[in-house]
Design a protein around this nucleic acid. Structure first.
Lengths: 231, 231
DNA sequence: CATACACTTCGGCTATCATCGAATAATGAA
DNA sequence: TTCATTATTCGATGATAGCCGAAGTGTATG
């Protein structure tokens, strides 16, 4: 009836608790199998299969077949952005989950948002990159400055390689816990990869939580001028 | 248990077509009344009321009471951002076109909007009345010109009788399918009544579809300078 | 080959929820 | 007051869709 994109179809896909749990699990950026996602959603495998078929038909996830497994992952960063935005709305309107698990504080501190860093450290990094003049606001977006390009090259990131990709280098992503933007895009992904390579941080098993070692977090804060978060 | 905000509840609110239409209408930033939103969504007022109560409970909209009206608007720009993100996903995943049921083409062509004509012919009539100088824009609204009053009197409409009513003679009404205004108000209703009286058109049973007879539509187009709709 | 595993399809059950008619409340106008 | 308009609440209905058991397809392993 209405002209324009059909948002209700997409939203209804996310609006089912089992599917929302699956999508949340895929926010880790990892490809998961149907059985794993069924367990995450708390439903039988055959139920999960119909859900995954609908998510794929809706274009929210993509699949890859390997042997007798099928691996599912989000179809792109834009899906993760919308999910993160929905989390922000849910948090603001007081619809946090009734039982806040023990991992919740850790999630707020540092977590994976699809393929880049989110949480307190994520927004702190974003602010620090601005403070050091590595990033600059432009047209409601954000761009890498020449100074930032040199600095991050020295940090071990192939900046020119990133710029050759079709994907945007810098992108804002609204953080649901901090309600402020953090850095997405290929640069955001490359930075997180570099933190892992430097052994500053590691991923928790079966979780989006990113755990920084004490020296790793100290180095991160010094290197990128991250200030202590005001409570 | 999962950590983080519960996105499925929020998403399910958007995932209902009627509510999605309401939210899309509120994307303009304007505050709309419950009746207006019911028209936008294509549901009865009591149905719209329950939807609006849920949207308010979910924190997506806020209300303000003024006299016997209640004005609804989005609770913040973050809601609009998420809706925009959903539109982007819907567009990317190829869900631009709306579901085309069998009744949809007829509905898009000509239908009743409360008590006046909507659809392609509705907006065509609106444009034709402007083109002939019968209607004139005024203060974001629309008024009947003296020339228009004479012409419509000759067409068989008691214009002076309309002006004595408390109800507004001319009013804009945004067309869902064309996303452009058509004519509402007592004049809009009187015109549709006249079309029925002249046997140019009739209403389909249990439907909002208005069917014009071939000679009726031809006369309508000639009399009111309705141009062929560009596809 | 046989067996186990991963996943999908089918059929029926059930619960949820959107929808509308009717009634109610509240406000404004005559 | 009386009437009209706006919005809400209640009750019944109907359609949608999630869910799981059972069966079927395809893949790896012994």
């Amino acid at each position: 009836m209405k002209a324009g994109p059909n948002i209700s179809h997409i939203a209804s896909l996310v609006g089912e608790p089992a599917r929302a749990n699956m999508l949340t699990a895929l926010m880790s950026g990892k490809a998961l199998t149907a059985t794993e996602l069924a367990h995450e959603a708390g439903v039988m495998p055959q139920t999960a299969s119909t859900h995954l078929a609908k998510l794929e038909a809706g274009g929210l996830i993509v699949t890859e077949k390997q042997g007798r497994h099928r691996y599912f992952q989000l179809s792109g960063g834009d899906v993760a952005d919308v999910l993160e935005g929905l989390m922000g709305l849910a948090a603001r309107t007081g619809h946090l989950r009734t039982r806040t698990g023990p991992r919740d504080p850790a999630l707020r501190h540092a977590r994976v948002c699809y393929d880049h860093l989110a949480g307190e450290l994520g927004v702190g990094l974003y602010d620090g990159l601005h403070r050091q003049g590595y990033l600059a606001a432009k047209d409601e977006g954000v761009v890498l400055t020449p100074k930032g390009g040199r600095a991050l090259n020295a940090f071990g990131i192939d900046v020119t390689g990133l710029q050759d990709q079709r994907r945007a280098v810098c992108k804002n992503c609204l953080d649901w816990s901090a309600r402020r933007p953090h850095l997405a895009g290929s640069l955001g992904a490359a930075l997180l990869d570099r933190f892992f390579a430097l052994k500053w941080a590691r991923r928790e098993k079966d979780s989006r939580v990113v755990t920084f070692s004490p020296p790793g977090e100290r180095e991160l804060r010094e290197r990128f001028a991250i200030r202590v978060e005001p409570v």
